[in-house]
Simulated assay, not measured.
Amino acid sequence: MMMAAVRKSTNWFAIGVTAAALVIVLIVGGVVWFANSQATSPGTLPESSAVNTENGAIAIGSGAKSVDTYVDFMCPVCNSFEQAYGPTLQQLADDGTITLNIHPIAILDRLSQGTQYSTRAANAAYCVAVDDPANVSAYVKALYAQQPKENTAGLDDATLASIATSAGASDSVASCISDGTYTRFVTAMTAKTPLQANATSIATPTIAVNGVTLNNQSDLTGDPQKDIVDRLDG
């Protein structure tokens, strides 16, 4: 006697539950990936012939040798560095000896009563560079000339914009500054600041001559000839 073949029924319910669970896993994974990418993304890039969007440098001059300065515009030591070394660096850039790469970074936001002045000032520097890089040097000097004290609110956006137009920028720079267009870019570039020798955290100013990072304690004596010019030739 022949036995009837047993037909196995397909459990569509179980398949449906499994498929739904897989979709949920994919969606959650996608959300996590998107959130992580947004957190680390540099956001809007400052498109300018003078800005290196990989490391955040704003280039002044076009010399074969290089000096990189990583500065926070609320940092009083950065201001002191500017007063002592700025004229020499500007001359070296003007005469074609160096490319001066200014990296506006933000490590002192905690000292501006919640206004994030360091980030806002750095953003403003990029706004000026995008508007017309020829005005960056004048703007940087003006920011130092009107540098707020630590633990104050810092300059407001309207003042940052006014200083920019006084340095030669167009009126359109005001919206870039007030919108914080390059805020995320500043944050991303700050994280790329090189550490000084034996340091465990970022410090400002950080200076690199021909790619070699100097130590503020031992390599910056206040003598531009010894500390910068001689190293360019070394």
Rank of each mutant, 00 (worst) to 15 (best):
N210G: 08
D219I: 05
A208K: 06
I202K: 04
T204I: 09
K192C: 02
S218W: 06
P205T: 11
L220W: 05
N215S: 14
T204L: 04
A208L: 06
N198P: 07
G211N: 11
T193E: 05
V209D: 15
A208F: 02
V209F: 04
V209N: 11
T193M: 02
V212G: 03
T193V: 11
K192T: 15
I202Y: 00
K192I: 05
Q217F: 02
K192E: 11
T187E: 15
T213F: 00
T190I: 09
T221C: 09
T200E: 12
V212Q: 15
Q196S: 01
D219C: 05
G222D: 14
A208P: 12
T193F: 00
Q196T: 00
Q217W: 03
A188Y: 14
K192W: 07
G211M: 10
L220Y: 05
L195I: 00
I207W: 03
P205M: 10
L220P: 13
P194S: 12
M189E: 12
L195R: 00
G211H: 08
D219A: 05
T221G: 06
A188N: 14
T221H: 07
I202N: 03
G211E: 14
P224T: 11
A199T: 01
A203N: 14
A191P: 04
L195D: 04
A197N: 11
L220T: 11
I207P: 09
T187F: 05
A203S: 15
Q217K: 13
T221A: 08
N215D: 15
V209L: 06
S201I: 02
A208E: 14
A191Y: 01
A203V: 10
S201H: 05
M189A: 04
A188S: 15
V212C: 02
L220R: 10
A208M: 11
D219W: 04
I207T: 11
V212S: 13
A203M: 08
P194C: 06
I202L: 01
N215T: 13
I207M: 05
P194W: 02
D223F: 03
T204Q: 09
L195V: 00
L195C: 03
V212T: 15
I202S: 00
A203Q: 15
N216L: 07
T206F: 00
A199R: 06
N198G: 08
Q217N: 13
V209G: 09
A197K: 14
A197P: 05
I207D: 08
T213D: 02
A197D: 13
K192G: 01
T204D: 10
Q196M: 12
A191Q: 15
V209T: 12
N216P: 03
S201V: 08
G222T: 12
T193I: 03
T206Q: 09
P224W: 12
T190D: 09
T193N: 05
